[in-house]
Design a protein around this nucleic acid. Structure first.
Length: 238
DNA sequence: GCGACAG
DNA sequence: ATCTTGTCGC
């Protein structure tokens, strides 16, 4: 699929990152309604890391599935050296190069992308899911497994029922949603990525849950795939 | 020095 | 994210 080139990632330091995030946050659009009925395909994105000769490497997997049958339609991946260290709040700058490289290989044009990380639920509303949308030009959804605390605000634990949730409201603004996708499991932290509203993100996410995981199917599949790919590349000493 | 910390 | 054994539950 075609990628909209926004900016490169040869940024110098964290102040560069912050400037990039703040220049993009005003372009976020969260008003589009895109329900499960209006999508045919959705993609899950995830990365895995390892070290080789003292250097960090990563692999990114994108899995596209049919929204109705849940069957895998396409899978692509990218692999390479990682040049940006992980710093909370700047995950996008670390992961986007490989994400973009993998997305370029997609033959399909998924209707929505689900990420393993936050979107709008972020210090600058610019988690990896939101940031990625400017390159993909497609609706994106953020799915985090642990809570990123912002401005000291905790989340309210949702009831132990499938689909139960509590909105994460900070300074009167809804940042995201603590969501119990299955009973007796920890909640996930859902937030808009971009070009989609929170209720649609919720509906799509819940429509992609099965008994295998608390994570939506495409994200879970991408997670599993990155582990397989990592084992392969480690063994073959790339 | 201590606590916090998406992946 | 990754490093790792056993263990509880369906």
């Amino acid at each position: 699929m075609k990628i909209h080139q926004m900016h490169d990632f040869h940024l110098k330091d964290e102040s560069d990152f912050v400037q990039t995030q703040q220049s993009l946050k005003h372009k976020i659009t969260l008003s589009h309604s895109i329900t499960p009925n209006s999508i045919n395909t959705c993609a899950g994105v995830d990365l895995a890391y390892w070290e080789q000769d003292g250097e960090p490497y990563g692999v990114c997997s994108i899995i596209v599935i049919d929204a109705d049958t849940k069957e895998v339609i396409e899978k692509v991946h990218s692999m390479g050296k990682i040049s940006v260290p992980y710093v909370s709040g700047f995950l996008a700058f670390r992961e986007l190069p490989l994400i973009i490289e993998a997305a370029k290989k997609l033959e399909a044009e998924p209707d929505v992308f689900l990420f393993d990380g936050n979107g709008y639920l972020h210090y600058n509303h610019m988690g990896v899911a939101t940031h990625a949308a400017f390159f993909l030009n497609k609706p994106t959804i953020g799915i985090a497994k642990t809570y990123l605390k912002i401005k000291g605000c905790d989340f309210v634990m949702p009831e132990n029922e499938v689909g139960a949730y509590t909105d994460i409201i900070i300074d009167g603004e809804v940042y995201g949603r603590a969501l119990r996708t299955r009973r007796d499991v920890k909640p996930i932290f859902l937030s808009c990525g971009n070009y989609i509203d929170l209720d649609s993100s919720y509906q799509i996410t819940m429509s992609l849950i099965n008994q295998e995981s608390r994570l939506p199917i495409p994200v879970r599949l991408a997670d599993l795939e990155t582990h397989v790919l990592r084992t392969f590349y480690q063994k073959n000493h790339v």
